[in-house]
Structures are given as C-alpha cells and as structure tokens.
Amino acid sequence: MNTANSDLPEKQRIAMVVEFDGQPFHGWQQQNNACSVQATMQEALQRIEGGSVVVTAAGRTDAGVHAEAMMVHADVSASRWQRSHLAYVHGINSFLPLQIRVIGVRAVDANFHARFDCRGRSYRYQIWNRSTASALHRWQHWWMPKTLDVEAMREAAQHCMGRQDFSAIRASGCQASSATRCIHTLTVEQSGHCITISVSADAFLYHMVRNLVGNLVDVGCGRSTPDAFAALLAGKDRSLGAATAPAHGLYFVDAQYDDFSSQALIGSF
C-alpha cells in the first residue's frame, strides 16, 4: 500500500472499517432533517479533502442500530493517501464525534463497492434478560424481564438454517424482489444476564434480523413454540408473526468480501 508512484491517479478508493454507537443517529443513510452516520462521516472527510466526498456502506442500518465493523468505501486524494494513511484514521477521527470511530483502512480497486461486492453479512442481537433493567446497558440491549427458555429458542432457530423464503420475517415495506436468502450460521448463547443471538447470511431482508429476534423471543417467553415458528416460516405470512424487536439491541458485526472482511481489517492502517 506504500509503494510510491509518480503516475498515481487523482483519486484513490479506500475501504474503511467503522464502529459506531447508533443511539444518537437516525440510521446510516443521509437525511434532510436528521443526523445520520453517513452525513457525519462525509462532513469529516470533506474537512480533510477540501471538497465533496460520498461514503457508501455495506448496509443501511436503522435508527438506533450499532456497528462493530461496518465496511464503507470512499474516493479520496491519491497523493494524500500515499503521504499518510493515518489521515484516514486518526485524521478523520479527530473530526468525528466520539460515537463514531474509523478503526481500519486499506486501498482497494477503483471498482470496489462496499455494498454490491459484499458476499455475506453478520449481525449480533443482545438481550438483557433480568427482572430489572440495566443502568449501564440501556441502549446496548433489549431488556426482557421475563426469563427466556434459551433451549427452546435454539430449537426454533434451527428452522432458519439454509436457503429458503423468509417472507414471514421480512418487513411489510421491504422492496427486495425475492425473499429467498441463505442463513449460514445462527446461534443463541447466554452469558450471565445477556442472551446473544448471532446470525450470518449471504444477504438480509429489511428488518429480517429484528423480526427473527422478535419471533425467537416469543418462543423463549412461551407465547409460541419451535414447531409453531417452523409453521410460520413455511406459511410466509409476516402478519402472523411476532412484533419487531427494538433497534438498539442490534449490531452490524461483519461484512465479507472475496479476499478480506471488515473484521479482519480492524487495526489495519
């Protein structure tokens, strides 16, 4: 990445790994009358670049959703990139609020696209399962005071594995032409009061993870059963499913590409 070249193009496309606390933002995507992660990052980059910069992400998170390792790309000054990669880590971080940090960066080909080249995505959902809410984790977990049956949730989760139609857990406003997706991994783990649901797939539908979590919690609470959840998936009717889980328990964890991933780039400068 540090090879000098007198024939460098004017622009260099870079991939950045971004960590953010979604609580103060109205989601990733830039909006006219609300604070977004995309607009905040673009403003910080513009202070470095001296001109307009567009930042494109692997996923468009909703208001309140967090990211542990979101992949984004942007076109920046090739000469500045060659002089110091740290301008796009420490430099941009100095202009960002503390709720957003760039934690990895690398040069990529000019045709690399953070969203369209992504081969798989991973999310984590955190539930605080205790009779009293947490003062420390208020915006990091979904508080669930009723004790959940984790084994029943695990049994229900197995019905989601593989490639199938997930119409039953897509949002009513989802615009995807097909509801067929392939879930590669789906686990439900408990450590103390925290229940963590981790899921990886080739792609996700709008609100798919939050609707999945809502239905698994219904099973854990005893309002539904693993067999009933399997029947729900087979019936492909979203209106019969559980309520959507709140956004603030959800984390974008990883974006996978042909030769690297956002998790693998953490710490790369």
Score class of each variant (00 low, 15 high):
Arg60Tyr: 14
Gly59Asp: 06
Glu68Ile: 08
Gly59Ala: 15
Thr61Phe: 12
Arg47His: 07
Gly64Met: 01
Val76Ser: 14
Ser77Lys: 02
His66Trp: 07
Thr40Gln: 02
Ala63Tyr: 05
Val76Thr: 13
Arg60Gly: 15
Ser79Thr: 14
Val54Asn: 10
Asp62Lys: 10
Ile48Val: 14
Gln46Arg: 13
Ala67Phe: 09
Met70Thr: 09
His73Ser: 08
Arg60Pro: 15
Met70Leu: 15
Glu43Leu: 14
Ala78Leu: 02
Glu43Met: 11
Val76Gln: 11
Leu45Met: 15
Gly64Ala: 05
Ala69Ile: 06
Gly64Asn: 02
Glu43Ala: 15
Val72Gly: 04
Val55Arg: 11
Arg80Ile: 01
His73Glu: 00
Ala69His: 09
Ala44Cys: 04
Val55Gly: 08
Thr40His: 05
Glu43Val: 12
Met41Arg: 08
Thr40Ala: 09
Val65Ile: 05
Val65Asp: 00
Ala44Ile: 05
Arg80Asn: 08
Gln42Tyr: 03
Met70Val: 10
Ala44Asn: 05
Ala78Ser: 13
Ala63Glu: 02
Asp62Tyr: 06
Val55His: 07
Glu49Trp: 00
Arg60Glu: 13
Glu49Ala: 00
Val53Glu: 11
His66Glu: 03
Ser77Tyr: 03
Met41Val: 08
Val76Arg: 12
Gln82Ile: 10
Gln42Met: 14
Ala57Cys: 15
Val55Met: 08
Ala39Ser: 11
Ser77His: 03
Ala39Asn: 04
Met70Gln: 15
Ile48Ala: 08
Ile48Met: 11
His66Ser: 07
Ser79Gly: 03
Ala69Thr: 10
Thr61Asn: 12
Gly50Lys: 09
Asp75Ser: 13
Ala67Met: 06
Thr56Asn: 12
Thr56Phe: 07
Leu45Trp: 07
Val55Ile: 15
Ser79Asn: 09
Ala69Asn: 06
Gly59Asn: 11
Met70Tyr: 08
Ser84Asp: 09
Val72Asn: 09
Arg83Asn: 14
Ala67Gln: 08
Thr61Leu: 07
Gly50Cys: 11
Ala57Trp: 04
Leu45Asn: 04
Arg60Ile: 13
Met41Asn: 07
Gly64Tyr: 02
Ser77Glu: 00
Gln46Phe: 01
Ala58Cys: 10
Ser79Pro: 00
Ser77Ile: 00
Gln82Cys: 14
Trp81Arg: 03
Ala74Glu: 01
Thr61Gly: 13
Ala58Asn: 01
Met70Lys: 09
Arg83Leu: 11
Ala74Gly: 08
Arg83Thr: 13
Glu68His: 13
Met70Arg: 11
Ala39Leu: 07
Glu68Tyr: 14
Val65Gln: 04
Ser84Ile: 00
His66Ile: 03
Ala58Ile: 01
Arg83Glu: 13
Ala69Trp: 04
Thr40Gly: 07
Gln42Trp: 04
Glu68Ala: 12
Val76Cys: 13
Thr56Asp: 01
Ser79Met: 08
Met71Arg: 05
Val53Trp: 11
Ala78Pro: 02
Ala44His: 06
Gly50Ile: 10
Ser79Leu: 11
Val65Leu: 01
Val54Glu: 07
Ala69Val: 08
Gln82Glu: 11
His66Tyr: 09
Ala78Asn: 03
Ala74Ser: 14
Arg80Ser: 09
Leu45Cys: 12
